[in-house]
Design a protein around this nucleic acid. Structure first.
Lengths: 284, 284
DNA sequence: TCGGAAGTGGGAACACTGTACCCGGTTCGG
DNA sequence: CCGAACCGGGTACAGTGTTCCCACTTCCGA
């Protein structure tokens, strides 16, 4: 999310007013050029990317593409998500994806610049907390259901957390969601900057939690074990650690009642929202 | 961190007392067997892993290995970390690693079961927030410097966040750190369970924040652009988004003063600690 | 001192990956 | 009806993790 759109923002804001007029014409020109031969355009993008020059953002290209192309891309992305959900990220190869679509492998490259780009599209397609079911008016309740929804989303697509972590989320879906959440934060009476920080903090916590919860699950899938086999595997080691007596605090925590993932998530979320509450209580 | 050691803990605790005696003899036996031919042992582990059976945990094997082997493994892991820091995770291949060590590629497999295992070792080697510089007595101050240290660590090794996310962190280094932090939480007067949740929440936030901060940086490295080139690339797109007028809250946040990464991190951390403070104020 | 076993290093080969290059077929506007 | 634009995909290449195997060193007991 560009909730933290970094320091170049100032420059952007400056150049914004000047460039605002010229943009539409420029876009029309680009569209004409592209329609001429879309195929070569993709190739050109590829070579330019290889040379390390400035590129075009995926979503701009897609927005200008023909409806058929857009549908095709959506179909590819959906299939890719399905494969990744079932077999994990390692199981998602272009050949597998193609065969699951019943097409040739290299045909995919007519619609997608690279696997990298495909992943970017996958992330945006799936990373969109849905606000419409959230209660309105009470920001605390809204944030709570929102955090729960996002967590559910991340757990439903085990590959998602790792991929989100390594690419700036500025896709249209993500943006729409970010806008809605920011609206809630602003509705708390916070100034925009603080609102941005609040939302960023909330999302960071949720993603961190989901990552933790997925770790064990991921390890089992990777090694091909069942959950039980894996536990059996680490049991002697953990036992040894506890026996050693070198980790008293750790031991006492392990030996105490163990909260479920749900409970621990709710605990952390509640603490975080407690922290936010102070902002509205003391500030403006 | 096994701060969330999941539901099988109960069973573990039960079997603990029974098995406690037998363990040392069992270990001595295993050691004798292993010394006989360590090479075959590694091969056996490999095939057993392929068949999907129960394995041995890496750290147990290493603890029993000869000092020379331990040194060699450490050398490999260090080199791997260096390569990953410089060229990213994608740039870390076994061949590259070997050539950076001046050895043959397949020689590495004498010391490391697989690349997977190597990554696990790398994570544990580097993921250890250091508590010794932290002030004692004041938990809030301790947590603050601790969070800052961990964030610094994660940013210093850009590949670390993604890898932590997908493997349960139960290495000795990680355990030692976890134990120390848990000690601080218990020192707040919290019961072990709550202490565990508090620490988990804190670490989750830090990792989430680091992931966010690294996203842009990662994207540039992956595409081979400079930071400026990348910004130039997305600028028109962001401009278009703002122009569209469909994201008013988002726009107002982007247009407002932009906090630095540091400021935003400190903000979130402060809110989280505010939330923790309530625990000590109201509870026991 | 010597012979054999245990331990070490690494080359060749395999099955797989992402994707550049190119050619034959299809569709459609003039 | 024909040419141009578009679409699908086979072949090939460089690079990956890993296995199998063999030559070499080191060391220990007789």
């Amino acid at each position: 999310m560009p909730i933290r759109p970094s320091r170049h923002q100032r420059d952007l804001r400056q150049s914004l007013s000047q460039d605002l007029r010229r943009t539409t014409e420029g876009q029309r020109l680009a569209r004409a050029q592209m329609r001429e031969h879309l195929r070569d355009h993709l190739d050109e993008l590829r070579t330019r990317a290889r040379r390390g020059g400035t590129q075009e953002v995926v979503w701009d290209r897609l927005a200008r593409a023909t409806p058929r192309t857009q549908r095709e891309v959506a179909r590819i992305v959906d299939a890719a998500i399905e494969v990744a959900d079932r077999d994990g990220l390692d199981g998602l190869s272009m050949r597998r994806l193609a065969s699951s679509l019943g097409t040739g492998t290299t045909s995919l490259y007519r619609y997608v610049l690279s696997k990298e780009e495909l992943l970017t599209l996958m992330v945006d397609a799936v990373n969109a907390p849905d606000l419409k079911t959230a209660p309105s008016g009470d920001w605390r309740a809204t944030f709570t259901t929102l955090a729960r929804d996002h967590r559910r989303q991340l757990l439903a697509h085990p590959w998602l957390v790792a991929e989100i972590a390594s690419r700036p989320a500025i896709g249209p879906n993500t943006l729409r969601a970010a806008d809605e959440i920011l609206g809630v934060a602003i509705g708390m009476g916070l100034d925009p900057t603080t609102a941005g920080s609040v939302v960023a903090t909330l999302l960071r916590f949720v993603r961190g939690a989901a990552a933790d919860e997925l770790a064990e699950l991921d390890a089992t899938r990777r090694t091909g074990m069942t959950q039980d086999q894996w536990r059996e595997t680490i049991a002697p080691y953990v036992r040894g650690v506890i026996e050693s007596g070198r980790f008293p605090s750790f031991t006492s925590v392990v030996m105490s009642a163990d909260p479920t993932d749900d409970e621990q998530f709710e605990f952390g979320l509640a603490r975080l929202l407690d922290g936010f509450e102070r902002l509205t209580a003391t500030g403006g």
